[in-house]
Design a protein around this nucleic acid. Structure first.
Lengths: 232, 232
DNA sequence: GGTGTCGTCGTACACAGTACGGCACAGGCT
DNA sequence: AGCCTGTGCCGTACTGTGTACGACGACACC
């Protein structure tokens, strides 16, 4: 029988959930995803290494479970009578919140196709439903869904690495300062724009920029929807 | 002295460029980035493992060099008298071309801040120049630059994993078919939208979808630019 | 010929994921 | 009671990774 079928915790305090929680705790710390090691998880849980393989078939399955857990945690506050714009904004915000809360996990989200029913329902079905409920035609809703996920993914991918390596609490400010200094110090004859725009460039992976992009997307999607509505 | 300072190729046929080329060749094959191993590169080049450390301080430096090489290869066909829309389109296309040509390397591009002058010039300075040349205000050009890079990054991140694991030449079509089948087979009561929209969902990470997104972005950026122009 | 210096690489070590098999202990049987 | 079998636990060990150390050989110069 598959490992999942075992009665969980006959007497032990460890479980699938505990393992995933430990893994998320490690990866969300400054150490990052690389620190998620079968051995490190085992010691963190106070068990032997191979014990974990009683709950997961491989480390990859643990990573899958992490992605699933994070995905399932997506939160869309329920409302009624939303306009398409409001729904799009809410969905975009939900995605990016997800990814900034677990920065290192965003790699996983993109590289793993969602498999569990829980995360599938939360991250696809419910989100699509939310969009369709506002009157967006289903086919268009799918496109919007893809666009927003892609946008959030890109944001996470662009932002996350610039946070790593900074002491926690830094919020990446120190790293940004160093980066700005580096850019500003380039030869101005060869890099006139980079030198001049260094302050703006380092601000790219911030939430302000993200909001700016979301607003743009929402506007343009809304406009596309109106255009579609004319045709039908 | 640093390894880079050595006269390259006193008599050996191997060089920094050869190593990077081999690494790209491996990672672009179906094996993916995981197959880029110090040992695999060494055997591919017909040398000993440690020879590579005469050219790079660490494997990480090799990955940096790969990212730099790919970034430097960005191609923006020179034109004059472009409209902002045309420039934005060209830049977006250039970015995504880059990432689809080296799908697995797109991970690297996001996680590594550009360091070499060559890639900095090609991927930042020149791109920004291109945008500014069309009359876009520099600060806005930076925002557009970030948005486009982020968008391309998200596209690559969303598309790439769905190509891995497929035999080369498949172009991911077989994988897509399987995914569609899986989605379509879900319980329709719980996943009505996913089941109904399975065909559209699997088409999300395609270039058509990307073009759709680019057009949307370009239009809205252009409109935002016009609005800005009114104010000044 | 001696004596660097420099590119090459064989060996070895720490750490990764994980296969194998033994351990302890539960519960149901006789 | 005594046993037996299933089931979680995990010590050990194997393969594969990145890389430090130091030996080896080829050339340049005195």
């Amino acid at each position: 029988m598959s490992p999942q079928g075992r009665r969980n915790a006959s007497r032990g305090k460890i479980s699938r959930e505990a393992i995933v929680a430990a893994a998320l705790e490690v990866s969300d710390s400054s150490a990052g995803l690389d620190a998620v090691t079968v051995r490190s998880l085992a010691t963190k849980l106070g068990t032997g290494t191979m014990t974990l393989y009683g709950y997961f078939r491989s480390k990859d399955e643990i990573l899958d479970a992490m992605a699933d857990h994070v995905m399932s945690g997506i939160e869309l506050p329920p409302v009624e009578d939303e306009t398409p714009e409001q729904a799009l904004r809410a969905v975009a915000q939900a995605f990016v919140t997800l990814m900034t809360e677990h920065p290192s996990v965003s790699w996983l989200l993109s590289s793993r196709v969602t498999r569990s029913h829980a995360s599938l329902k939360a991250a696809m079905e419910d989100v699509l439903q939310r969009l369709v409920n506002t009157g967006i035609p289903p086919e268009t809703a799918v496109r919007c869904y893809g666009l927003l996920i892609q946008f959030a993914l890109g944001f996470a991918a662009y932002q996350a690495p610039r946070q790593w390596g900074a002491a926690s609490g830094d919020d990446g400010a120190e790293l940004r300062r160093q980066q700005e200094h580096y850019w500003a110090g380039l030869p101005a004859t060869e890099f006139p724009l980079v030198v001049a725009l260094a302050p703006q460039l380092v601000m790219l992976p911030t939430e302000d920029q993200f909001d700016w992009g979301v607003e743009l997307l929402v506007q343009v999607l809304a406009r596309a929807l109106e255009a579609d509505a004319q045709h039908s």
